[in-house]
């Protein structure tokens, strides 16, 4: 099963007619244990549509003698029987787009190395492959000039979803300008720093010193941009990055030209045509 797909196992903690209620402490222990084990829990109250069919697999627990451990065991057994998805396979780290701010500039699509982004049938940017995203890497949010990309599990605002202030917008715009001054994109500057370290290695013939320097450069850049080392280490060539950007621009220009001549009479390009 795809790790980002599939129904979850929902547990309905029934304490209504035919079942005496749990003590509040036992209820807390049971629900905490179920949540820690990755189960969704509904505690219905009178008049609720607690078990309304939403496609999830439902187990109703109503044994008032049930202790937390036994409840979790029963839930796991039901999950194994139903084939419902287990949590814990993937930390849900992925970008979320704030469409109130997004201007569809496609910088994130061009910048992301891992094909997390794509466009829908209306050429609107969207997150298409969440599980491709590198855990703890917020790099794309740093190139967004509108501060429109969130990572809800990030530690600091506004990337974590905190309100965006005017200063944040100015700061992000500055970052984009700085990257342009450095030669077009942040990756180019990152690689230049790495190449400088390599050059030093070749001229000084001091392997350990060169490696230390390279590590120091990457560490500094990683710290400045909060980008994980494994992402820095897997950077593509500058040429690759430029080629991606040029392909994206060419496709956009082609589409705009086509739209002007036929006034959008033709169907919009498919996602495959847009795939870059």
């Amino acid at each position: 099963m795809n790790k980002t797909q599939g129904p979850n196992q929902r547990i309905v903690l029934h304490e209504g007619p035919g079942s005496a209620p749990l003590s509040s402490e036992e209820r807390y222990r049971t629900i905490s244990a179920l949540l820690d084990s990755g189960f969704e829990v509904t505690r219905p109250s009178r008049g609720w549509e607690a078990a309304r069919d939403d496609g999830s697999t439902i187990l109703i627990l109503e044994n008032t003698e049930l202790k937390a451990e036994a409840a979790v065991a029963a839930a796991r057994e039901a999950r194994d029987r139903s084939g419902a998805r287990q949590l814990g396979e993937w930390k849900p780290w992925f970008p979320v787009i704030d469409y109130d701010r997004c201007t569809n500039c496609m910088q994130c699509l061009t910048f992301c190395l891992f094909d997390v982004y794509g466009v829908d049938e209306n050429q609107k940017i969207q997150v298409q492959h969440q599980s491709n995203c590198k855990t703890d890497c917020p790099a794309c949010s740093r190139v967004c000039p509108e501060v429109a990309i969130l990572f809800p599990k990030y530690k600091n605002g506004p990337i974590n979803g905190d309100a965006v202030r005017q200063d944040d917008v100015r700061r992000e715009a500055m970052k984009v300008d700085i990257s342009a001054l450095l030669g077009g994109d942040l990756y180019a500057s990152l690689r230049n720093r790495t190449q400088e370290a390599r050059k030093r290695f070749s001229t000084e013939r001091d392997e350990s010193r060169a490696l230390l320097e390279r590590k120091r450069c990457l560490k500094e850049l990683g710290k400045d941009l909060d980008i994980p080392p494994e992402v820095l280490m897997s950077l593509p060539s500058v040429e690759d990055i430029h080629e991606r950007a040029e392909r994206a621009k060419a496709k956009l220009a082609a589409r705009q030209a086509r739209s002007q001549t036929v006034r959008d009479a033709r169907p919009a390009p498919t996602e495959t045509e847009w795939g870059i």
Binding site: T4, E40, S56, P92, F94
Partner: peptide, 18 residues
């Protein structure tokens, strides 16, 4: 009454019908 979920981000990524 209430619904408690392990992680809203995870549910969003899975497009959980809940």
């Amino acid at each position: 009454g209430f619904d408690a979920v392990p992680d809203l981000c995870d549910m969003s990524a899975r497009k959980d019908p809940a």
